[in-house]
Structures are given as structure tokens and as C-alpha cells.
Design a protein around this nucleic acid. Sequence first.
RNA 1: UCCUUGGUAGCUCAGUCGGUUAGAGCAUCUGACUGUUAAUCAGAGGGUCGCUGGUUCAAGUCCAGCCCAGGGAGCCA
Length: 476
Amino acid sequence: MQRTEIKHLLKTEALSQDVLVKGWVRTFRNTQFIALNDGSTILNVQVVVDFQNTPEEILNKIKTGACLSVKGTLVPSTGAGQSVEVKATEIIILGEADPEAYPIQPKKHSLEFLRSHGHLRMRTNTFSAIFRVRHAMAFAIHQYFHERGYFYIHSPIITGSDAEGAGEMFRVTTLNLDNPPRTEEGKVDFSQDFFGKETNLTVSGQLQGEIAALALGKVYTFGPTFRAENSNTTRHLAEFWMIEPEVAFNEIEDNKNLAEDFLKYLVRYALENCADDIDFLDKRLAEEEKQKPQNDRRAMGLIETLRFCTENDFARISYTEAIQILQNSKQYKEKKFQYEVEWGKDLQSEHERFLVEKHFKKPVIVGDYPKDIKAFYMKLNPDGKTVAAMDVLFPGIGEIIGGSQREDSTEKLMKRMDEMHIPAHEMSWYLDLRRFGSAPHSGFGLGFERLMLFVTGMGNIRDVIGFPRAAKTIEF
RNA sequence: UCCUUGGUAGCUCAGUCGGUUAGAGCAUCUGACUGUUAAUCAGAGGGUCGCUGGUUCAAGUCCAGCCCAGGGAGCCA
């Protein structure tokens, strides 16, 4: 007999037909009612046990976490919580779960506790919901770009370029670290390493994306990204997934339009395609918020926040305007900001949060940053002081997207590289993109897990990736 | 890396001014009940108080160092 997935079973008309379901016990109530879940949906199916005619040794093994195969008939439920249920005729224990030893019991567990039992946490409602949504978001990303004629580019994981300038890198080597070969000056001789030079894990697929965009027009990458920063926060990982579209002929405004349309599409996709899971996560968040003091609570619930995001235009301001808004704020005048607000200095988290959560109360795109606080490849504006950069700031998360129009003038790019001490000889291929058939082009990077934080309402980035890698954290 | 708050039963936490035998809820086990929705009721078992050292007649409680975790900051997506 074919197994029916619970997701489909719950939408089936109950006509006392024979069915086979398999799944894991969530709770066993009253020696009679099993809440069974098989991961296909957050919803459980209720299995009704004829306990008087079921052997004791089977009944004793129906415990939270145990895996069952159940044959029975699908009937309308007389109970209130569900429309259909399975009257069991045969129960087979596929895998026992000793309740004395199994850590996941039908009670509220803290996220920290579940994080420390990472191999079992996907069996909970919260985490199964998160990972179904994560799949849906990954799928929606490909669908969005595919429908619009973008090409998916596989940027390399190992890079020989050390000029990407996005933080600390993980070294890739096959050299014997106990006794590496040395040059005459006593330095490690990387010419004897596997690739014949120093290599690292990628910190960005952007530069390769630019190569592809200036040939194929519209491209994107979606892959793992590695940063060896010793950062210990709720929004940083050492290994994370990043989406980086890169588009020839797009100028900075086109880039902002793409970012806004893309994010709204993804959020709408989650609302439309993950309703049960989002609904659960909405309730979970509401429960969690209840525990907090009144003025620490979010202004809106999860679903409300997501709808709001899809229905309203993002605010768009320049860095210079942002500084003015901050300097005219009550907080600034009352010296409530810990860090200085001054043209030329980067916006701090507290400033970004003020703009998004207090002033505009919606997503904000900040553009035209001072050139000195941004990367060398960003296009210099006519004022000679700012660059065509853009950061998309989201409530509760901060920077979810960072992007820019790229400098397409060989001369200006070389000047910037010189000023920022980036060795031109190592980047000749990058300069060639400007030297031959240069074109205006733009792109951005979206942190996949930061998107996941927003869509699921979770607070810690380690809870929206299956197997988090961070400083001093690597398991499984 | 810095700041900050924590570490007490399987989990979540309480533990007063340093003072007798370290408590509660949930989970677990046993029994009762049997159309329940994290079922309910009764009872039972369960502790290296993060680790090391110090102060003291006496330390879960005070002090120092270390380890681990949460939150915030920096860096960034």
C-alpha cells in the first residue's frame, strides 16, 4: 500500500477509505489519540487508537518522538480540532524513542536548548516550519530571476584573489602546516601550494558576477560565502548563503528598483505559499513578544510586518539626508546616540535602527555614501565625494542588502585602486572588463539568512540555517 | 575582540542578611480515567548548585581566575 503524506491526507475527503501514514509522534493523549507528523506540513494528523484491542507492548512504545507506520481508515473526526482522522487498524513501531532519554518532549523548549541539540531541533514545529520556508525562499529566488531572463552563474568557492576587500578570509591550503616550505626570506612558499599561490574561500561572488554580466547581460549567483570575522552576533555567520544579481546597463536607480521588487516578491511568495508555517511562526512570535516588557515589543506581528512590507514603498534617501534626519532628531539633540553623527562617518547600528524603526517605520534604502567608507569598485558620483552605493535597511535586521553601481571608467577605477592600495597587477582581469567594451552595470548582495530572519520573525541567525558555522561553533 | 547578563533536577526557573535535610512548574515513571487537542487527577523517583582556588565555625549565596551560553557593540550580508 502507498503511503499518503499528511499534507495531502488532510485535504482528502474522508470516505472510510484505507490509508497508510508514517511519521513521528508529537503527543499521545488519553492512551487514545496520537498527533502524528511526517514533516510534509506543520499540521498533524490525529490517529485514533483502539486501545482495548492493541497489544500493551505496542501502546507502551507510542511515545513522543517515536516513529510509526499506521494503517487505518480515513474518517470524519468527531473531535473539534480537526476535520478528518485516521482510525488505526494496524500500528507498527518503526523506531522507538525512550522518553527518559529523548530530549524533545511535548513542552516549551528554549531556542538556546534546541540550538545545543541541533540534530534534533528540526523535529520541532518551529524548526520544521523554518526549514520549509527556507526551501520555499530558495526556490522563489531562482523562480524570480528565471522568469525575468536572468542566468544563474556558479561563482567559484575557492578564490585566488585577495582583493575582494570584504573582510577576513579562510585560507585554503594543502601545505603541511607543521612544516611548510619556506622562501629564501623565510616566508611560507605558497608557490609550492596546491594552486601555486595563496588561496582562500570566497567572500563574494560579485567580481565573477561582473564578468558574466558584461557578457550575458543579466545574471545572479546564489551560493555559500565565507567570512572569518570573529563576530559574535545574532546576524553574522562564518558560512552563509548570498544572492548576488549583477546587471549590465542597470544604473543605481534600476538597482534600487530591482532590490525592492525582488524583496517584495519573496515576501509575497512566503505569504502565499507558506501560509500554514507563517501562521505558526506568527503565533510563536506573538507568544515570545508577550514575555517582553511593553516597550521592547515589536510594533507589528509577523504577518502584519510582512504584509506591510509588500504593500508600501521603501523609503529612499541619500546618506547626506540620513545624516540631516539624524542630526535633527530628538535623540540626537538629547545626546541619546552613543556614536557621533557626522558627515563622512559610517552609520552605526543605532542610527540605522532609528531611521528604520523610529523615523520612517518601514524599509529604507540609503544611497550616495561618502566614497571613503565604501569599496573601491563603486561608481564615483559627479560630486567627486560620494559613490553610487545603496544599503537596504530592514526593521530588526539592519542591512539586508548592500550594493552599488560599479565604476565603469578604467581611469577612475585605477585611481581608486591606487588610493586604496589595491594591487592593479592582480586585478588586471577586472580592469579588462572596463578596458574592453565597458558598460554601466550594477548589482547587490542579499544575505539569504537575513532574509530568513525577516520572513520567519526569528531573532538569531543561527536558528534559520540548518548547521550554523560561527566562531567556535561547528557541529555536525 | 569589547561591554553586559547569566550558568541550581531532563527542561524553564525560584532560592531572602552566608546558617538545619536546596524548592516549584513542566517532562519522566506508577496508578486512575477514557473523544482527547501541550488531556485531567493522585502519588513517586530525580541534584558534582559550570570548573578551580580562596575567605569563613559555616558558601548555591561572598572574592579571584578560568570555561560556556544569551543579549548588545564593532565588522558586515
